[in-house]
Structure formats: C-alpha cells, structure tokens
Amino acid sequence: MSFLNKVYQAVFRRTSTFALAVVTGAFFFERGFDQGAEALFRYVNRGKLYEDVKHQFGGAGEEEEE
C-alpha cells in the first residue's frame, strides 16, 4: 500500500517523471524483450544451431568484422 503510494507520489503524479519513467523503462524492456526472444529461439532450436555443431569442424579460429 505505502509502496504504491510512494510510487504514485514520486513518479506517476507528474507527467514529466511519468514520461521519464516510460522512456527508461522502455530501454530495459527492449533489452529484456530481445534477450527473452533470443533465449526462446535458442531453446526451441537447441541442437540445430551452429554453436551446437561447431566442435565437429575442429578449432576454426575466425574473427568477424563489418
């Protein structure tokens, strides 16, 4: 109760702090969402990814650059 009260008084009450909270929250939301989606993809495709079969081709030291 008092926690929600404090949050409301500190963040939600003013539009400026509310917008700031949304923007910073979106930053972390993006990270979490992307990493979660990636983890789900890796879980669904486990055993089929290149990382999983890489060892079959020996120590191929390769560096990437764009």
Binding site: M1, L4, N5, Y8, F12, F18, V22, A26
Partner: peptide, 25 residues
Amino acid sequence: TAAKRQAFTYMFVGGGTMAGAYAAK
C-alpha cells in the same frame, strides 16, 4: 486509498506505453 488505485492504473498505462515505444522504435 486513492493513490493506490491510481498507481495501479498508471502502472498499466505506463507499461503499455513502454511496449508501444519499443514497437514504434
């Protein structure tokens, strides 16, 4: 108890805006 109810509502609004900002980006 008004602040509690408002905080709850705004939390959903803020969360939706957050997801919307990510989608827009």
